[in-house]
Amino acid sequence: MPHLVVKDVVAGYGSGPDILTGLSLDVEEGKSYCIVGPNGAGKSTLLKAICGLVNIRNGTIDFEGETLLGLRADQVLQRGICFVPQDRSLFPDMTVRENLRMGGYILKDRNEVERRIDEVFEMFPILKERASQHAKTMSGGQQQQLLLGRALVLRPKVVMLDEPSLGLAPKVSKQIFDSMNQLKDAGITIIVVEQNARMGLGYCDWGCVLDLGKLVFEGASRTVLDDPRMAELYLGTRRTGSEK
């Protein structure tokens, strides 16, 4: 049963052109989704649209039967959808612990936040080690773990990650994806955008291919990888007119 339903969404920045041009996507609870597509396809924009950071011009987004349209980012967060953006959005001059505290910003109960931070520390021991270190002094992989940990403080139902492996060594990327799968096993729905389609799809249940602001096709990860249309998109043989 899908619990996040994106339907015919048209969205763009400010008064600029439409970036998402009628995109539909069903997300089922407890599964992991990998979104792939060429640069500029609108992958990041889709995630931002879901969590209230981009204005939606048309279409609907429902979560657990209620619409997300018109909600501010903090209200979407209240519903249990967390977003980890592409650009390593940490607070560089705050300590690791303070960054995690910021993850629980919308929670009123401070003791509860501290308890949950301890949980995060269990999952990512390295964060506990570095708790009082400034975030900017951490390595890329550690920063990505911190970002993930920060999202987990809210005990979200859905976690969306935008290119978590960007700039990381393969081994470290693997760690990140492993932790991601751990979350999935705990019942959290995962939506991840990944440039390295092979690796991303390898870790996820379902693959969605985006181009020019639309869902081009989707399917079980394995089938997506082997689909000839993938090669077309990635090797640039598309849009030569042969598609007609």
Binding site: C51, L53, R72, A73, D74, L77, Q78, F83, V84, P85, D87, S89, L90, F91, P92, D93, M94, E98, R101, M102, G103, Y105, I106, R150
Partner: peptide
């Protein structure tokens, strides 16, 4: 204070602050 955290967070990284739910 909570507001203080929000102010510092917004100073350091406006998008990140938005992402963790700071208005």
């Amino acid at each position: 204070t909570r507001l203080g955290y929000a102010i510092r967070a917004t100073t350091h990284n406006r998008t990140a602050a938005e992402v963790v739910g700071v208005n």
